[in-house]
Design a binder for these strands. Structure first.
Lengths: 187, 187
DNA sequence: CCGACTCTACCTAGTGATAGATAGGCGCAT
DNA sequence: ATGCGCCTATCTATCACTAGGTAGAGTCGG
């Protein structure tokens, strides 16, 4: 393998998106990578280290993706459509979900280092959404915009969770449609 | 204990609401109940049996609670406010969340019997919400009403998840406020 | 050019803790 | 005396993690 550490992170992310942090085992991960579990510990001393690295990278990747969208267009409707599509893609990928969404549920059992990265991920999403909402309505109250951004973030996460529990991507689409129709997500 | 089986179910529910199905261990549960783990197996032969019974009862209780609301008033705004309050109460109870919401995330690792009960729980919620929406707008298209009901269910679940990840009930309130302000939840 | 040293990236083997589950027995109430 | 409710004791499997070792690549002085 060219870069084992990267391979570990990629495969671990996929596992956590499907089974959660609790459902991530060094043995299974090692088997997927093609090495022994002891070798995972060489790259990430503890599971908490791996979890924190995973969540941090997840946030970095999200920021890069979202900023990429902003570099291509300033149309709020297009940007929000693309944002929703990111969450849809997780479901398309074997009914997976947002890694930090899963970790949010597991909050009570997460090492502190992982918890703070999960919070940071939410912050990145909310900040970006608020930025897009300001493009749509620059005159709006900044505090209300931030609240609205958090509401959209939470609602899409909820739609993903509901669709996942049924293994039904069409349900995700239907729920998001309702969000747009009722005005939660501006069109 | 007067009724050990009931005690097991009550305490198990609390554990799953905080740590998920995966986070429920017979040893910890038995310790909480004050018996040995082997005795749990006497009442529930396997963990899957316990999980299914838990999810089924959760749905039954929800139905009873919601129907109780309907028996008291026919005002949609009041009913929806009470519905939201039920989810808020989980957070108030040591930052717990909806048991079936947690299980929705764990979907991939759930025994089939548990999965179907989780789906049934969602059905109960959506059916009740649709009923309330029909009270608010009897002329609306029934299919659209059902979609809207699912959107509200998903959005509130998402709000709970987001608030839990921050241990911040005020965030739940803020998000729900946004849902009402934008019109997702009719006022 | 070569032996000695060191570092990286992996390995085998095993730790103690914990998981769900089982067999069989004991005490008590009907 | 039958059976319910719970027990002790144990099983097998898996968990994160560790100790200690090794093959190979790179680095160094002489």
């Amino acid at each position: 393998m060219l870069d084992t550490r990267e391979t570990i992170m990629t495969l671990a992310r996929a596992i956590v998106q499907a089974h959660g942090y609790q459902g991530l085992s060094f043995r299974d991960l090692a088997k997927a990578v093609g090495i022994k579990s002891a070798s995972i510990h060489y790259h990430f001393p503890t599971k908490a280290d791996l979890g924190a690295a995973l969540a941090r990278r997840y946030g970095e990747d999200a920021r890069a993706t979202l900023d990429g969208f902003l570099a291509e267009t300033s149309d709020p409707a297009t940007l929000l459509r693309r944002y929703v599509a990111v969450f849809r893609r997780a479901l398309e990928n074997d009914n997976r979900m947002c890694m930090c969404g899963f970790m949010a549920a597991e909050h009570d059992d997460l090492p502190e280092a992982v918890k703070s990265e999960v919070r940071a991920f939410a912050d990145i999403n909310v900040a970006w959404l608020a930025q897009v909402l300001r493009l749509a309505d620059p005159a709006a109250d900044p505090t209300a915009t931030e609240k609205r951004a958090f509401a959209i973030f939470a609602a899409i996460g909820g739609a993903q969770l509901a669709a996942r529990s049924r293994g039904d991507i069409a349900l995700f689409d239907s729920i998001v449609e309702s969000y747009c129709a009722t005005g939660l997500i501006p069109a």
